[in-house]
Amino acid sequence: MMDGSRFNSTSNSTAVGSEKIAPAVVLGLCCLVGLPSNIVVIISIAREWNKNLSFTLKLMLNLAVSDALTLCLAPFVLYGILFGWKFGLWSCKFLFFLGHWSLYVAVLTVTSMSVHRYHNVIKSRVTNRMILQRLERRHRCLQLTGIWILAFVFALPVIFTQGLKDKNGLLRCQRITESQSVKVTVLLFEILLGYVIPFSTMLTCYLWLHKGLRQKAKSSSLTRAPQDQEPRNQGTNVRTYKKRLVISIVVAFFLFWTPVNIINVIDIVITLTKTSHPDVHSQLKSFRRVYADTIYTLVLLNCCLNPFLYVFFSRNGMKCT
Rank of each mutant, 00 (worst) to 15 (best):
M2I: 15
S5Y: 14
R6D: 15
R6M: 11
N8V: 07
T10Y: 14
N12P: 03
S13V: 06
A15K: 10
I21P: 06
P23C: 11
A24V: 10
V25G: 06
G28Q: 03
C31R: 02
V33R: 01
L35V: 06
P36R: 02
N38I: 09
I39K: 00
I42N: 02
R47M: 09
K51L: 13
M60P: 10
L63E: 03
A68R: 01
L71W: 02
F76Y: 15
G80I: 05
I81M: 11
I81K: 01
G88H: 00
G88I: 07
K93P: 03
S102P: 00
L103G: 13
V107D: 00
N120K: 08
N120A: 12
K123P: 10
K123V: 14
S124C: 12
V126E: 07
T127N: 08
L132T: 13
R134I: 09
R138I: 10
C141S: 14
G146W: 00
W148Y: 14
I149H: 07
F152E: 10
V153C: 06
P157I: 08
P157L: 01
P157E: 04
Q162K: 00
K167L: 09
N168V: 08
L170R: 03
T185Y: 13
V186Y: 11
L187Y: 15
F189M: 06
G194F: 04
G194W: 05
V196R: 00
S200I: 11
Y206I: 02
L209C: 09
H210D: 09
H210A: 10
R214T: 15
Q215A: 00
L222K: 07
L222D: 12
R232S: 15
N237G: 08
N237I: 15
V238Q: 01
K242T: 09
I247V: 12
V250Q: 02
V251F: 12
P259H: 08
V260C: 14
N261M: 02
L272Y: 11
L272E: 14
H281M: 01
Q283K: 13
L284Q: 03
F287H: 12
R289A: 13
V290Q: 07
Y291L: 13
D293R: 03
T294D: 10
T294C: 05
C303K: 01
C303Y: 02
F308D: 04
R315T: 15
